[in-house]
Design a protein around this nucleic acid. Structure first.
Lengths: 176, 176
DNA sequence: CGCAGATGATTGCAAGTAGCAACTTACAGG
DNA sequence: CCTGTAAGTTGCTACTTGCAATCATCTGCG
């Protein structure tokens, strides 16, 4: 968390320092938010991943299991199970595709949408409280930058290493 | 992701809209970063949580298991196991407290510090690439705001609901 | 037509992560 | 000493996830 400017990469640069600061801040944020989500969302009878799925279906409309998997960066089997849970709870329905009997169209149900709205409203309210004392001008650019970071991270790492392990030694000895 | 301005809470307000946008952006960011971390860090033979622990010990110095647990928002038993793994791998050591035979001082080893530096450098490099095309002025305020968001979120939810379940119905029927 | 190969989704299995409750060891007060 | 409290650990259970194998279709070619 302290600067620490490692000095042995990008030889110097304001950029590197900024990146260090941002990285530390983001690591913290992500960690804390994982918690916030775990505890908050589970109040409403779904898990975090389930909520992401619900959100995707709410925002982007019906889609196939595979597409959802790609969107959420999940394995297709995991996606199946996430949807299983949502279907069981009545928040999502599987509808077979007219043109392809293998494929399914996943769509959110009214009950699912209403749940999602509720959760979303809570989270947004929280966010609003935190934003309240931040300069309106800054708010906009922050959101913008966060969006860009998310997009960049996704792009980088979806095309790059990801999708089931990184290049060299992934999984060598983590098990323990 | 589209505005959607629910319109039935905080009746209107620019703030609410900003909060919605931010919430969506953050949700995305957090989700993507969870992945980045999972895939990247595991290349180096430790899990994400283990890396958080390592980071805490690297940044804040030796501490007790309990303190670390509080810092990482983990149960003490989970913390024990996280440390178990790090000790087994030689990245952390347990040293009994001189004054209290029950307590342990957890401290990062040179090997642990070096691993953490390596991982950190990689992540920072990635961050730097993404920051490269963002206005330097904005960079600073973004980091600042992210820090504040993290702090606010942590404060809110550590004192509030958290620490083992939220107020009313947590755990009622999530299992399925 | 009918079969081989590709494709969408599901299932079996194994590993990782986490919390709660019970337990062990040690400190603290009377 | 003996009781109560505190620091860590262990047993158990549950959830999440990915990989590999499987099932059901679809598609194309002979």
């Amino acid at each position: 968390m302290q600067p620490k400017s490692s000095s042995r990469n990008k030889p110097s640069s304001r950029l590197w320092a900024d990146a260090e600061a941002l990285n530390a801040a983001l690591a913290d944020l992500v960690r804390v938010y994982q918690f916030r989500d775990r505890d908050r969302i589970c109040c409403h009878d779904i898990s975090v991943t389930q909520c992401y799925a619900l959100e995707a279906l709410a925002d982007k409309g019906p889609m196939r299991s595979q597409v959802l998997a790609a969107l959420l960066l999940l394995d297709k089997s995991t996606t199946t199970r996430v949807i299983d849970a949502l279907v069981r709870k009545g928040y999502v329905e599987r509808r077979t595709d007219e043109n392809d009997a293998r494929a399914l169209s996943l769509r959110i149900t009214p009950s699912g949408r209403s749940l999602y709205d509720t959760i979303n409203r809570e989270l947004v309210a929280q966010q609003a409280e935190m934003l309240a004392d931040i300069d309106p001008q800054v708010r906009a650019s922050v959101t913008d930058v966060i969006r860009r970071l998310a997009k960049a991270a996704e792009a980088r790492f979806v095309s790059g290493v990801s999708v089931g392990g990184c290049a060299p030694s992934c999984g060598t000895s983590n098990g323990d």
